[in-house]
Amino acid sequence: KFTDLFEKMVPMAVQQSMSIYSQRKAETVNRLVGSLREATNLCNGVLASLNLPAALEDLSGDSVPQSIAEKARSIVQQGGLQSIEQLIKDLPELLTRNREILDESLKMLDDEETTDNELRAKFNQRWNRTPSGDLYKPLRAEGANFRNVLDKAVQADQVVRDRYGAHCDMIALLCKSEDELSAAIPSANPTKTLQGSEVVNVLRSLLSQLDEMKKERDTLEEEIKAVTFDMSTSFLTALAQDGAINEEQLSLSQLDQSYGTYNQRVQASLHMQEELLGKVQTSHQDFSSLKQSNAETNQREEVLKKLASAHDSYVEISNNLREGTKFYNDLTEILLKFQNKCSDIVFARKTERDELLKDLQQS
């Protein structure tokens, strides 16, 4: 039942190539998934600004259009306002925890360096070890990098808070009961019955194609995230055959192989959206000219638009908060490793210092 503890051990060059490959892979996945999400956000924004699909459902002029009711239900299901308020409240704590670990780590280096300098001043050239300041440069550079990343995260937190501030009233409205929601939407006398008209059918078909497209994107995103490939064998073979690893070439060709088709499917999806939205815009113009609009209908439409975009913002804010919470927790792991590196080197320097002191006091 022997398991070789060193089974996974690989030469340094392979280890470094593996981590660079995983960086390239992460960037590829982020780019593909990011462009899909960005396109979906754009699509939702355009539809909300045209008050679609609500305008097609809103024939009675006073009840809550079905799509708005569905959006309200989905927000309540996801925990409503409270769930995002709680996540927003947690952000400062997560930030402080990370900052403290970083500050403590750098303080260790500073304190040890101060003592090293004092002893160098006291013993002059007899204190002949490398100055701590020189030794700690790489760690301090890494520390500065973490500080920079934390500063960016603070800005991201603020973006999320502002986004929440801009939409929380409307989100709160969506979380209310259907009666309260209905009462809050100005009613307007029923629009001329457009039920059977061709333009409503065209718009409906376009909207269902857009929904289908968005659903396909969810599966596409899962597939893209599920791709895995173990590069260690090809890196090991390259090292064995050529004595060196052309990481870039090997990684890029593998990434192209793994994600080439996905890239095409993403581009196709983006292109389809452009086409469909173009048609939606033109059909919507016909639709608007057909239905009579007056102050009342405009007022009602404005509130419906705000409710639709409040739902989209709720989804976006929830994604941002999930991303932010994950970011801070992942960063804590990395900072704890950094802290260990700092305490290790400081411990080694202290041991070395005590020995040097002993020698000097004896001589």
Partner: peptide
């Protein structure tokens, strides 16, 4: 994405 990427921070630099 809104938050910075941690990918390049994960690379463990070995101190000689």
């Amino acid at each position: 994405s809104l938050y910075p990427s941690l990918e390049d921070l994960k690379v463990d630099k070995v101190i000689r």
